[in-house]
Structures are given as C-alpha cells and as structure tokens.
Design a protein around this nucleic acid. Structure first.
Lengths: 203, 203
DNA sequence: GCAAGCAATGAACCACGGTTCACCACTTGT
DNA sequence: ACAAGTGGTGAACCGTGGTTCATTGCTTGC
C-alpha cells in the first residue's frame, strides 16, 4: 500500500479542522446562527465548501462541536470563579455573576446565540447542556451555602436556573443595544445576592 | 360600477382573516414557529394557500400579528394581576408571578415560542416588545414599592427584566419536560420576593 | 339575466442553502 | 519515476417552503 498518513499530514489535517471550527465560531459570533452558512464558513477558513464535509459529516455536527467547545470554555471560567476558596460567600457569588455576565458582554452576538437564538434540534441539545452546566455550577454553590447555613433553605436547582435566566435576560437588552452600561453588573450582583437570600445585601 | 362590497361580505372577509390568524396561533401553539408553514396554516383554516396572501402581505406580517395579539392578551392578564388593589405587596407580587407562570405552564409550546424560539427579524421585534411589556408592568410595580418604602432602592427596570428572565428560564425545564411540578410555582414566588428585597420572605 | 369585478384557488415558480460527486493535485512507498 | 490512494475542489443537485398568477366561481348593480 503506497500511501500512509504521515504525522506531518495529520498535523495539517488537524490544523485545517481546527481552522474550520474557528471560522464557524467567528461566523456565529458575528452573524449568529442564521448567518452561519456553510459556504461562508468555508470561505472564511480559506477552503472550498466541500472540504468542510471532509471534516464534518454535516452542518449540525459542526455547529454542535462549536457550541460544545465554547461552552466548555465558558463553564470552566465560571466554575473557576465559583471554586475560588478565598473570600466570603458574597464575594464568591459576586465573582460568579461578574464572570458570567462580563464574558457575555464582551462577545454579545455569541452570547446571544448561546443563550437564546434558535437552531436545529441537534444543536439545541447542546444549548440545553450549556444552560444545565451553568445551572449545576451555581446549584452546587447554592446547596453548599444552604448546608453551611449561609443561605436560607431553597430548591437549589430551581434557584440556580432562575439566576441563569435572570442574568441572561438582563443582558439581552444591553446585548441588543450596544450599551454596556456600567450600572448593569453591580445591579445584577445585588439582584443575585438578594434572590439567594444573602442577609444584608444592601450595597 | 357593478360591484360594491356589501357589509355581509365584509363580515365574511373579516371572519376569514380572523380564522387564518387563529389557525396560525394554534399551529404555533402545537408545533412552534418552525412548524408554522403557510400551507399548513391554510389547510387548518380551511382555505387555499394563496388565500392567506389575500389577507396578509407576507408570512412575517401574519406571524407578527399573531404575536401581537397573544402578547396583548397575556400582558393584560398580568397587568390586571398587578393592578389588583387588594392585599399586601407580597400578595400582589405573588399574583403576578403566578399569573405569568401559570399561564405559561398551561400553553407550554406557545410560551416557549413567545419566550425563546428563534424567528425572523420582523417577528423578533414583536418578541422584544413582548418582553419589554412584561418588564414594564413589573417595573412599574417595583418602582411603586420602592417609592412607598416597601422595597429597598434598586434599578426597577433591570430588576424587572431579570425577573422576567428568571421566571422564563425556570419554566423552560418544566416546559420541555411534560412535568408541571407543583413545587415550581411556590419556589418561583419565593425567589421573586427575595430578589425584590421583600423583608421576611421565608415561606 | 347579464356584464363587471372581486375573492378563492392551488399548481407552478423561484430562491436559498445543505449536500454530493466527478475530477484534479499531491503524497507516499517501492 | 510511477502506481495507488488521499485530500481538496466547486459546480451541480435537490428538497424545502415562501410567493405568484392564470383560472374559476360568486356577487353585485343594472
């Protein structure tokens, strides 16, 4: 058999695949899911349309992988903020909210796509997973707060889901308008602290 | 000129138009925006495809009008709950949350379409208006609470937006699963009361 | 009745965008 | 250098679904 895939070739293939993934991510970040046309992604990645299908079985798979990679990164950032052992409970919650919201405000279109924009079922699964991942990170922290008595008793999962929704919705306005609005973040932090039942949440 | 539109004919036209609107609403309520195909709406209304275009210039206009009519109804229900002059502030907030969430849980697919499902720009405008209308109803009540000293100082608009998002998100799970879950509503009420800073929110 | 319009019809048209595939260029092992 | 096989190409294909329009069947005023 006069052909065997060389490490150098494999590296080039991997790079190309990663390039397509990056192009799709950038395309979504700029034009949303609706504007993420395979031909446009290919052009952006500097390859032909057909090449995309040499690396991904279908558009849905490509997008699912994009979502998965972005979500992994975002959830990791928030989880890291939640895990930070220093500081009071209030400081930790503040860090989580600011991380979540701050990152979203830096990449509005992408955040919108992840939070709200409709897609096909295959990708919706990923989005669901995304929100669940965030919810679970927050729910864990809430449950711990309840256990240690820093927070009043509550349904941690529901509270966490509501918080994810609250932050997401509160951001949609600012995301839609181009107005970051410095007041948004502190107000969201206050809202979150109060909603969780932190005593003395009066900034 | 041997033809003039008679009142009876006008009535039939109006009824037909209303029927198409109702069919589109029902179609969205059952299959969401994605499943709302013009041909299906027409079949459901008992007319031919082309007839739809005799009453609406384009699909986007039809859908926009559907959204507007549903939203008007929903916002009115919530506004009515908010306006109810009897009872304490806590009771009023409870009524608003239960009205909002309770109605959504009764028509899950429709609620999902209104809250989250992606559509084309023309309709997105309506959805934005929808969320803003709810937000404003709540914001008004919050502002009043702040003014009378029943609530701590806060950015009423942002708080209200966050509440809309919180309720919406907390409902998405139950909406997706078929599980109404009797615990959801009370938990949401508690969350809302705490988030607003109502003193003594410990059910 | 009958001419003049209007509303309804639904098959045909068309644009869009995902997917395919016959072809070309290049790499590898001998 | 060459045979065997791989990766890249992009024009063409195809399904979907919104929109149109020539035709048909009613209504109205005379």
């Amino acid at each position: 058999m006069p052909y065997r895939r060389t490490p150098a070739v494999q590296a080039r293939l991997d790079a190309l695949r990663a390039g397509i993934l990056a192009a799709a991510t950038a395309q979504i970040a700029e034009h949303g899911y609706a504007g993420c046309i395979v031909a446009a992604v290919a052009r952006r990645a500097g390859v032909a349309t057909g090449t995309v299908y040499r690396h991904f079985p279908a558009k849905a798979d490509l997008l699912a992988e994009v979502f998965r990679s972005v979500v992994t990164r975002e959830v990791a950032a928030v989880a890291e903020a939640a895990r930070r052992p220093t500081g009071t409970l209030t400081e930790r919650i503040t860090a989580v909210v600011e991380t979540f919201a701050g990152r979203a405000l830096k990449a509005p279109r992408l955040a919108y796509a992840l939070l709200a924009e409709p897609v096909d079922p295959a990708v919706d699964t990923e989005r669901l997973a995304f929100r669940e991942a965030f919810r679970d990170v927050i729910a864990t922290a809430v449950a711990e707060g309840v256990r240690t008595g820093h927070l009043p008793p509550q349904n941690a999962r529901l509270t966490a889901a509501a918080l994810v929704g609250a932050i997401g919705e509160a951001l949609v306005g600012p995301l839609a308008a181009g107005t970051p609005d410095v007041d948004t973040l502190p107000a969201l932090v206050t809202f979150s602290l109060r909603a969780l039942g932190v005593p003395d949440a009066h900034p």
